[in-house]
């Protein structure tokens, strides 16, 4: 048989092959030890030299062709096999994955952490103080003696005549100053309590106290620190204003407002038509407070501020009822 005939009969036999096994048999039939091509190649030795040359070239060419065809078909069949295997193993990929759905972060904790991180980035450390506090730290040392009308600003839970639930995080100022020499720079996040419950007040809420005392701290520094914070926690373009107010432990004192984030200052229900929302209280630490812990008020000055976290969270996430924070309804928590 000549090379051309072999090639033709091989192609005829290759065409119907459907399995890797059949293909292997075909390979043996042509290229095996006793295969058709192998036999023809063996015969070459018996030919006269002049024929041997051209017949040999033709047979080699045919062998290369057959090998290539076999390899190509093998790949095809493997591919086909795999596809069938995949098809038979297919699953419904739209079914849900198996995992424990992660719990959610409480919105108050979320803003507390965010606020803490902002102040930590500005170099403030984090301090903590007791929630059940001596009257001395909560009031007296903050320039609020007994029979001071400012005590009415904060409805107080009493445990005994001298022990209260802290009404603000400010007592931490005094505790830290008693422990550390100036300069000091810290925040104190935590729970505070007021004997008050209605649609806009809960008997417990969260504050972050901020405090910085050194030999050169001014009201302009307070303004910049709070503006930086409010721009980070809300947005860089939110307007911030400071207006005079009163706290017994700061002087000068300020209330800080931000431009209403709902109406953008045109006036709405949330801002009571004013375009501004009161967001925190602040001021320069009162010299009496410094003197009471032995800081020399002629050398040191500083600022303090207290931020209500519920208020921040309500504005940030458009929450209209403060009581939602303490129901722990998963339909609420699940949104954060």
């Amino acid at each position: 048989m000549g090379g051309g005939d072999i090639r033709e009969s091989f192609l005829n036999e290759l065409a119907p092959v459907k399995t890797i096994g059949d293909l292997e048999q075909l390979r043996v039939r042509y290229l095996g030890k006793k295969g058709i091509l192998t036999a023809e190649l063996k015969k070459l030795g018996g030919l006269p030299p002049e024929e041997r040359r051209s017949a040999g070239a033709l047979l080699n060419e045919t062998k290369i062709f057959v090998e290539a065809e076999l390899a190509a078909r093998k790949e095809e069949l493997k591919e086909l096999d795999l596809r069938e295997k995949f098809a038979s193993q297919a699953i419904d990929v739209t079914l849900p994955g198996k995992y424990t759905p992660p719990g959610r972060t409480h919105p108050i904790i979320r803003v507390m952490r965010e606020a803490t991180s902002i102040f930590v980035a500005m170099g403030f450390s984090v301090e903590e103080g007791p929630e059940v506090e001596l009257d001395y730290y909560n009031f007296e040392a903050l320039n609020i003696p007994k029979e001071h009308p400012a005590r009415e600003m904060q409805d107080t839970f009493y445990v005994s005549p001298d022990i209260v639930l802290r009404t603000h995080t400010s007592p931490v100022q005094v505790r830290v100053m008693q422990r550390k020499k100036p300069p000091v720079k810290f925040i104190a996040p935590g729970k505070v309590y007021r004997c008050d419950a209605d649609i806009s007040h809960t008997p417990m809420f969260h504050q972050i106290e901020g405090f910085m005392v050194a030999d050169d701290i001014s009201f302009s520094h307070l303004k910049a620190v709070l503006e930086s914070f409010l721009h980070r926690i809300f947005s860089p373009d939110v307007p911030v204003r400071f207006r005079p107010s009163y706290f017994p432990f700061t002087e000068p004192s300020a209330e800080v407002d931000i431009g209403c984030i709902f109406c953008k200052g045109t006036g709405c229900r949330t801002c009571k038509g004013t375009g501004w929302i009161e967001i925190l209280g602040a001021g320069m630490v009162h010299p009496h407070v410094l003197q009471m812990v032995g800081y020399d008020a002629r050398i040191y000055s500083g600022f303090a501020f207290g931020i209500g976290m519920e208020r921040i969270a309500m504005l940030k996430y458009s929450i209209d009822d403060i009581r939602l924070f303490f129901e722990n309804d998963l339909r609420f928590l699940g949104q954060f």
Partner: peptide
């Protein structure tokens, strides 16, 4: 100081970030 500041206007007081020693305390 407060009387002067509040009549002068808090809004007219500049806003300047303080300089202070670095701290590695973190949270």
């Amino acid at each position: 100081v407060e009387e002067v500041a509040r009549i002068h206007g808090y809004d007219k007081i500049p806003s300047v970030l303080p300089c202070s020693r670095l701290s590695a305390d973190g949270a």
